[in-house]
């Protein structure tokens, strides 16, 4: 019996086999979606580029060669050079690390915070629920970019502050979602069983509730990553995110803006990178949603 048969059997012999089988079926369904595969490919390429940036780059991302400034794309500089003679291709390659850094940190903050607030509110109910959800609603009622702008204005520009500002504005939908999921399972028999066995709220939420909410939170995070990348790039473009000489894509567009009419490549190339990467995340997230959340699917 091959691995494929073992995965696709109708009568799994153990819970582990059933789990692997379900994951494999999900993967087959995802693999069937050509656009989602394209998205996955883009994301994998991004990870690869970020991991091997020093080897993939042809120049140093910060080395200034003023005699070579504003060169059009050529064999020596594949995507041209910017106003300080830095190689744009190498800067974009290194910038992928910054993008992943921002997205990664925002996700690491937002996922657990949203999960914690949502599951606690949903499981405990009562006044805890009311207070936590009111706070969530307040943040949800804010326009996200404007709130992030105001926060960065208060904290001062910089990549860490941009991450904090984006995270503060991004967690509420996750709390909402986790709460909704928790409400549907809090009365389930297996929760009651755990409680009768003497499990406290912390254990029940941590071991039995959170795992049930994970898949929808992950899908939503994947879908949101494009939005996070765009917000970070927007802040960078306004000069409020990563500061020069960091090769952040949004900030690169901002400096290239002055040279738009005569040296179009300075501003357009980093924008293309942002576009391709966030399209990748959107395509992947869209496909993932079809697989993991059949209610939303066609």
């Amino acid at each position: 019996m091959g691995a494929r048969d073992w995965l696709l059997t109708d009568t799994p012999g153990s819970p582990t086999q059933a789990q692997f089988g379900r994951a494999y079926q999900g993967w087959l369904q995802l693999a069937d979606n050509r656009l989602a595969m394209l998205g996955l490919f883009i994301v994998v390429v991004l990870l690869f580029v970020a991991a091997f940036a020093p080897w993939l780059a042809t120049h140093s991302p910060t080395a200034q060669v003023l005699s070579d400034r504003l060169q059009p794309p050529s064999a020596a500089h594949w995507l041209g050079t910017d106003e300080l003679g830095r190689d744009i291709y190498s800067r974009i390659v290194h910038g992928s690390r910054l993008t992943l850094y921002i997205v990664g940190l925002v996700v690491i903050i937002v996922g657990p915070v949203g999960l914690a607030v949502g599951t606690i509110a949903g499981y405990l109910g009562g006044w805890v629920d009311v207070v936590l959800m009111r706070i969530t609603d307040v943040f949800l009622a804010f326009p996200r970019l404007i709130l992030a702008l105001a926060f960065v204005a208060a904290l001062g520009p910089g990549i860490e502050n941009a991450i904090i500002a984006i995270a503060i504005t991004a967690w509420p939908p996750y709390a909402r979602m986790a709460r909704a999921e928790t409400l549907t399972i809090r009365k389930a028999d297996y929760i009651a069983a755990a409680r009768i066995q003497g499990a406290g709220p912390v254990r029940i939420i941590g071991r039995h509730v959170v795992p049930m909410c994970l898949s929808s939170v992950i899908v939503r995070l994947t879908l949101d990553m494009a939005g996070i990348i765009l917000t970070a790039a927007g802040l960078g473009f306004l000069g409020l995110g990563a500061q020069p000489p960091l090769p952040e894509w949004g900030a690169m567009i901002s400096t290239g803006r002055q040279y738009l009419l005569n040296q179009w490549w300075v501003a357009t190339m980093p924008g293309l990178a942002i576009f391709i990467v966030s399209l990748g995340f959107n395509l992947l997230g869209d496909g993932l949603r079809d697989v993991l959340d059949p209610r939303q699917a066609r």
Partner: peptide
């Protein structure tokens, strides 16, 4: 669907710059 996803993915400030470059300049 693809058109919509592109709309979700493109940085609006970049699209604006490109549009200015093409249609204005």
């Amino acid at each position: 669907r693809l058109l919509g996803l592109i709309g979700y993915s493109v940085p609006i400030f970049w699209l604006g710059l490109v549009a200015l470059l093409v249609f204005y300049a």
